[in-house]
Structure formats: structure tokens, C-alpha cells
Design a protein around this nucleic acid. Structure first.
Lengths: 225, 225
DNA sequence: ATTTTTTTGTGCTAAAATGTTATAATGGTA
DNA sequence: TACCATTATAACATTTTAGCACAAAAAAAT
């Protein structure tokens, strides 16, 4: 999941933001001022920075400028109403969004999501998501599977399971891994559920069931070049 | 030369801006309020919009948002100091620059030049926005849909939904994605809303409803060559 | 080799989830 | 006000799923 750097001199704001961000599943690091933020950014990679404008040691604008000299990390600025907002208009310093204090944490989180998504799609835009294994075609983004040219009608779980297996082809996967990744971390069910769905998936794949290999005492693997 | 749309409710401002803009060699059209601007944009193509924030009938923010649903036209906002500038932070509404009243017309024209230049290169990479699927014609920039040659009368949401689906044809889209992209990230409503609009869209498409495929447990997809 | 134990595969079914449609409520506009 | 678009809610039919029981297969123990 994404890693967010929160930069504010007020500990209470940091705490509040951390709470919300962690609730959304983000990893959080804090910095007290711009100087600290710049140093942290030199040593680590973050996916997004939430930064206050007004801070001791090094203000938000300058920190932002400094960081963007070496790394291209999206920034959301926090500013008290009345601060020089026109400076913020951020083409030259690279601000991605802007929230005025006092802000609603919920809205801020919505913006975080948007900015992360915008930058994600740019980063991983060209990810191969169409695979062909002999007569088996797997089109992940189109959510389609063809068996010998004929479209396979599968259930949602079958798709999800197959896609995960294919994305991790030739890698041994335990049932627990599959449950966590395909069913979700909040699924507290039986291991054997995986078996059942593997069974159904194998049926759907017909002769290409051969690609799904049982790893006794462990789990399953999609085995293909 | 570039065609500029000036949107302000004060006739004196419009006159002033027109004078300067025409001196620079731009073609100028005026609108008195946001609503008028939106309508003009549906019918014509402009290279840039200079828009006041505070206007009767439809304010600048909303007009901007509305226009950007269908066209990608750069906008420079005019705002009196003290207006809610935070809303302006305009990535989500697509504001390219921002000038505070009272402004220097000379400076404004300098910004117009910059924005036009920036967007010229982007505009040259034209993407196809007219699609034909059998008897279904979808003209995105013209915001028109023809079913067997007959113009379909659809609601705004239907257009937006269809256009987004078509732009992402053959890609599986979740309801959340659709809500976020078509309704906006600030829509905190029910997932089922998508279903309702899909239903209505299907009705509008008549026999070509077949292109809209339900992906059980996931969402929808526009499936066509 | 044979038996025992462990693990995996399969058919089945009640329960849960989902999609569709119809209808009602809401909200904005002329 | 009346109208229309949008959104929410509810009922319904259908599909999907989880997990069990038992069969089959593989591995381990004897």
C-alpha cells in the first residue's frame, strides 16, 4: 500500500492525519518541519506528501521545491485561510492539490486517493495484462478468458483466482496467500474453499487445467512458460 | 488565431477584456454567466475560457466542472480577493490559472499566452472521439449518440456514463471506478446508482444494449471491437 | 507390500450475494 | 408550480459461494 509522509509542526494535526490515513490502509511517516521532510525524502521513497505551509525551520513551499529537485513526489498542501495562496498555484513548485485549514479529514482523504490514483496510472500505465498459453487466452483488464477461441463463462471468483494465479505464474502460492489476495484479508473461512474453487476453475479451463499444478502440502501454482 | 470565451456578468469587464484580447489578435466571444458559457461550449469550440467565479445563474466553479465533462478547454479564473480560493485549486475542476481582481489586463494577457502555448502541444495529440459500433454512433466531442441513424435523447448522466464506457471500451470497470470517474470523487452515494443508470442507458441504446456487458461481482464493460 | 495417515478432488446444497427492474423520494430548473 | 433528471429503496429472480461429506490419491509408516 501507499506510503505517505505527513509534514506539520503541530503534533495534534499529525496525529489526526495519521489516524485517518492508517484507517485507509496507508503507511505513515511523520516529519515536524520542512527540513526534516527534505532529509527523509532523500533517504526514503514516499508515494505522497501532505505538507503544511507554515512551519519553522523550512516552510512548505521551500521544502516542496527542494524535494522536487530530486524526486517527483505528489504533494498536497495544507494552508490556513489567508496565507498567500497565489504562491501556491503550483505549477512551478509542483503542488498537486491544496486544502485549507480547518479541513475535513474525510475530504482530505478523498483527495489523497485521487492524487495517488492519478500518479499510479501514470506510473504503471503499460502493464501487460494479456496472456496467451497455447489455446488459453487470459485478458485481465478486459476480464475475459478464451479457451480454444471460445469465451469461457466463469464466476467472479474463478476470474479473480485465475488472474491472480496468472499474474504470479510459476510461483508457488499457499492457500493462505490465495485466500488473502483473492478473497481479501478479512476472509476468515476454510482453507478448503480454495480447493473447491480450483476445482471449478479447472473445469472451466477444460484441457488447459494442466496449467494449474497442485503442490502437495502447500498450495497451487500456475505453471507455464 | 485562438478563440477565447470571456465569461463575466459585468459588461464593463467583458468590454475591457475583449479590447485587450482583440488587440492581441484573438477572436472573442462573450457570455454573461456560467449557464450561457456551458451552452456555448456545447455548440462551439474555444481555445481558452476566461471566467469569473461569482456570477448569477451558474457560478464559475460549476460551469468549469460542467464544461470539462465534455470538453478539455483550458480555463483562467477571475476572482475577487477573498472569495473561496480553496475551491479553485483546480485540478479536479481543471483550472489552469487564476487571477485576482482587480487585475492588470496586461498581466492577464501574458497568462493567456502562456496557457495557450502550454495547451497547444497537448491539443495536437488529438484522440479519436467519434466511434461507430454497427448502428450505434457515439460522438463524444459533439455529445451526440445515434441509434440506427436516429438521434438518441439521453439524460446528461447517460451521456457521461456511455462516453466513459466507450472511452474505456473492452476494459472491465468496477462500480466504484464508474462512480469516481463519472460522478466524481466527491460523490458518496450508493453503488446501486450505477445500476439504475445502466438500466436507463440500456433502454436508450435499444438493440445495442448488447454492447454493455455485466461483469458479475465486478461491474460493467462496453464490449465491442 | 501392505496398511495407515494425510492431503486433495468432487458432488451437493443451504445460505449469501448480486443484478435487474419497478417504484418512490429528492432536488434542481424553467 | 410542474416537470424532469437523479438518486435511493425494495422486491424479486438468479447466480455464486462456502463448506461439508465422502471418494480418490499420494505419502508415510510398518
Amino acid at each position: 500500500m501507499a506510503h505517505i509522509l505527513i509534514v506539520d509542526d503541530e503534533i495534534n494535526i499529525r496525529k489526526l492525519l495519521r489516524e485517518y490515513a492508517e484507517f485507509e490502509g496507508y503507511e505513515v511517516t511523520e516529519a515536524e518541519n520542512g527540513m526534516e521532510a527534505v532529509n527523509l525524502c532523500h533517504e526514503n521513497d514516499y508515494d505522497l506528501i501532505i505538507m503544511d505551509v507554515m512551519m519553522p525551520r523550512l516552510d512548505g513551499y521551500s521544502a516542496c521545491k527542494e524535494i522536487h529537485k530530486t524526486k517527483n513526489i505528489p504533494v498536497i498542501m495544507l494552508s490556513a485561510r489567508g496565507e498567500e495562496y497565489d504562491k501556491l498555484f503550483g505549477f512551478e513548485i509542483g503542488v498537486d492539490d491544496y486544502v485549507v485549514k480547518p479541513f475535513s479529514p474525510k475530504e482530505l482523504m478523498a483527495r489523497v486517493k485521487v492524487v495517488l490514483k492519478r500518479n499510479k496510472s501514470a506510473a504503471e500505465a503499460v502493464q501487460p495484462d494479456k496472456y496467451v498459453f497455447e489455446g488459453l487466452e487470459v485478458d485481465i483488464s478486459g476480464r475475459e478468458v478464451y479457451v480454444n477461441g471460445k469465451k469461457a463463462a466463469m464466476t467472479p471468483k474463478e476470474y479473480d483466482l485465475l488472474f491472480y494465479l496468472v499474474k504470479n505464474k510459476n510461483i508457488a502460492l499457499t492457500r493462505d496467500q490465495l485466500l488473502e489476495e483473492v478473497w481479501g484479508y478479512d476472509f476468515f473461512g476454510d482453507d478448503r474453499t480454495v480447493d473447491t474453487h480450483i476445482k471449478m476453475l479447472r473445469n472451466s479451463l477444460g484441457e488447459y487445467r494442466k496449467f494449474i499444478v497442485t503442490l502437495r502440502g502447500m498450495g497451487y501454482k500456475f505453471e507455464a512458460n
